[in-house]
Amino acid sequence: MASSRDILRRIRSVRGTQQITKAMKMVAAAKLRRAQQRIVEARPYAGTLDRVLASLAARTEHTHPLLESREGSRAWLVVITSDKGLCGSFSHNILREADRLLASDRWESVEVVAVGRKAAEHFRKSPVPVAHEETSMISNLGADDGPRIAGMLIQAFESGQVDEVWMLYNRFLSMIRHVQVLARVLPVAPPLEESAEEPDVDYLYEPDAATLLAELLPRQVEVQVSTAFFDSVAAEHAARMTAMEAATKNANEMIDRLTLLYNRTRQAAITKELIEIVSGARALEE
């Protein structure tokens, strides 16, 4: 049986851990607020772009290389996880789904673009070839990162290196919910025009529709990639918050249990001493 001093030491150590998990939860909460803010701020741009692109695509017969489906089936799968751990099953679930997709015969030949250190480490050990990895971008995401990765994907697509690009990531829904999303990035699927209630607008195009399309499509890809990054980061912080909340609660329960045990041990020791004193006194009387 552990001595009461050992138990005290354990209580102190659990309390120390609890302080750390509590601090991490608070940091995650602050970061989550910022990440949510970014999602909201990016929305007007994405919304307008969708609308304009939809009307442009619906009204012109022009096509563009980024819109064309090709025969081939060489694909890239962009897998977005976190850089850091301690966020529950956040990255693990994505990687399991990625493995499932890669093992299926969905694509004839596929390479992985690993975003997040967790993904990079995972795919280094797997037989799937890795086309590109980002190991420190997600934890320090800037406004230029989305467009940079999008540019890389577009270049690979335009040069004929790949025929399709897909993205697998966590979409942030709420504090306690995020869902896995598998989305095609390239070729671009033009957003569908919403119900035809609004009268069709016949635009003048300057310089011309083809140039506009060439300008807008890469932007659309950038927005899609950036949105995925922002979503994933927000979901990661939410997941970490939940995980740390649970850890803090567990630590509390543990402290309660240990305190109870400590009191019991202390009482047992006192009782034992009393018995010894009493029986010692008896022995003297006789």
Partner: peptide, 19 residues
């Protein structure tokens, strides 16, 4: 600042998309 030169827009302008 349109890509082909400055564009002045007043209310009631014809619908236009420009780079």
């Amino acid at each position: 600042p349109g890509s082909l030169g400055m564009l002045g827009i007043l209310p009631g302008h014809t619908p236009l998309l420009t780079t």
